[in-house]
Amino acid sequence: EVHFESHGEEQAMRVVKMLKKRNLTVEVKVENNKWIITAK
C-alpha cells in the first residue's frame, strides 16, 4: 500500500494517473487542504 500527500490538485492528478497505469486501486481524499492518495 502506498500513501502520497500532495498540496495541489494538479500534482495529485498526475500521481493518480501514474498509479492507475500500474493497475493499482487508487483512493483520493482531501483533508486539511492536503490531497491524500492511497494506492493498493
Rank of each mutant, 00 (worst) to 15 (best):
E1N: 10
E1D: 10
E1S: 11
V2N: 05
V2D: 04
H3R: 14
H3G: 04
H3W: 12
H3S: 09
H3E: 05
F4I: 10
F4W: 11
F4Q: 03
F4N: 04
E5R: 07
E5P: 03
E5Y: 11
S6G: 09
H7D: 13
H7G: 07
H7M: 12
H7I: 10
H7K: 09
G8M: 13
G8V: 14
G8A: 13
E9A: 11
E9K: 13
E9F: 15
E10Q: 10
E10K: 12
E10M: 08
E10A: 13
Q11S: 09
Q11V: 08
Q11M: 11
Q11A: 13
A12I: 08
A12W: 10
M13S: 04
R14S: 05
R14P: 00
R14H: 06
R14Y: 08
R14D: 04
R14K: 08
V15Q: 02
V16A: 06
V16F: 05
V16D: 00
K17E: 12
K17H: 08
K17N: 12
K17W: 13
M18T: 04
M18S: 05
M18Y: 12
L19T: 01
L19Q: 01
L19A: 02
L19H: 02
L19P: 00
K21R: 11
K21N: 09
R22N: 06
R22S: 07
R22I: 09
N23C: 15
L24H: 04
T25Q: 12
T25R: 12
T25G: 03
T25I: 14
V26F: 08
V26L: 04
V26W: 03
V26T: 02
V26D: 00
V26R: 00
V26S: 00
E27R: 08
E27Q: 09
E27A: 07
V28Y: 06
V28T: 02
V28G: 00
K29P: 00
K29G: 02
K29E: 03
V30L: 09
V30S: 04
V30M: 10
V30W: 13
E31M: 10
E31D: 08
E31I: 13
N32E: 08
N32A: 07
N32L: 04
N33V: 03
N33K: 05
N33S: 06
N33H: 07
K34S: 05
K34W: 05
K34Q: 05
W35K: 00
W35Y: 08
W35T: 01
W35D: 00
W35L: 05
W35C: 02
I36L: 07
I36T: 04
I36H: 04
I36K: 02
I37V: 09
I37H: 00
I37P: 01
T38N: 04
T38D: 04
T38I: 13
T38C: 12
A39G: 07
